[in-house]
Simulated scan of single mutants.
Amino acid sequence: MELTCKATEMAILLHVLPPTSIVVFSKSSSTQSISRSLDLTRRVRCRISDSSSEVKSEEVASKLEYNGGILDDFFMNSFRNKLVEEVGYDSEKPGYVGLMELVKLLLLKGRTRSETNDAAVRILKSLFPPLILELYKLLIAPIAQGKLAALMVARVTVLTCQWLIGPCKVNVIDLPNGESWDSGVFVEKCKYLEESKCVGVCINTCKLPTQTFFKDYMGVPLLMEPNFKDYSCQFKFGVAPPEDDGIVNEPCLETCSIAGRRKSNSGECPMS
Rank of each mutant, 00 (worst) to 15 (best):
Met1Tyr: 05
Glu2Asp: 12
Glu2Leu: 08
Ala7Glu: 08
Met10Arg: 09
Ala11Gly: 10
Ser21Phe: 13
Val23Gln: 05
Val24Met: 05
Val24Ser: 07
Lys27Arg: 14
Ser28Met: 08
Ser29Trp: 13
Ser33Ile: 15
Ser35Val: 05
Arg36Ile: 04
Ser37Ile: 10
Asp39Gly: 14
Arg47Pro: 06
Ile48Cys: 08
Asp50Asn: 07
Ser53Cys: 00
Glu54Tyr: 04
Glu54Lys: 02
Glu54His: 03
Glu58Leu: 06
Glu59Pro: 00
Ser62Phe: 05
Ser62Gln: 14
Leu64Asp: 14
Gly69Tyr: 03
Asp72Ser: 06
Asp72Val: 04
Met76Gly: 05
Phe79Cys: 06
Phe79Thr: 13
Lys82His: 08
Val84His: 01
Val84Asn: 00
Val87Leu: 00
Ser91Arg: 06
Tyr96Asp: 07
Leu99Trp: 02
Glu101Trp: 03
Leu105Asp: 10
Leu106Asn: 02
Leu106Met: 08
Leu106Cys: 05
Lys109Cys: 04
Gly110Trp: 06
Asp118Ser: 12
Ala119Gly: 00
Val121Ser: 04
Leu124Gly: 09
Phe128Tyr: 14
Pro130Tyr: 06
Pro130Ser: 14
Leu133Asp: 12
Leu133Phe: 03
Glu134Ser: 11
Lys137Ala: 11
Pro142Phe: 00
Ile143Leu: 11
Ile143His: 07
Ala144Thr: 11
Gln145His: 14
Lys147Ile: 03
Leu148Val: 10
Leu148Thr: 13
Ala150Ile: 03
Val153Phe: 03
Ile165Tyr: 15
Ile165Thr: 13
Gly166Asp: 12
Asn171His: 14
Ile173Asn: 03
Asp174His: 11
Leu175Cys: 10
Gly178Glu: 13
Ser180His: 15
Ser180Leu: 08
Ser180Asn: 12
Ser183Trp: 00
Ser183Ile: 04
Lys189Ala: 11
Lys191Thr: 15
Leu193Lys: 01
Glu194Leu: 06
Asn204Pro: 06
Thr205Lys: 05
Lys207Cys: 10
Phe213Ala: 00
Lys215Arg: 13
Gly219Tyr: 06
Gly219Asn: 09
Pro221Leu: 06
Met224Lys: 09
Met224Gln: 13
Pro226Ser: 05
Asp230Phe: 01
Tyr231Ala: 08
Phe235Gln: 01
Ala240Ile: 05
Glu243Ala: 03
Gly246Cys: 02
Pro251Ala: 07
Glu254Asp: 14
Asn265Phe: 11
Ser266Phe: 09
Cys269Ala: 08
Pro270His: 02
Ser272Thr: 02
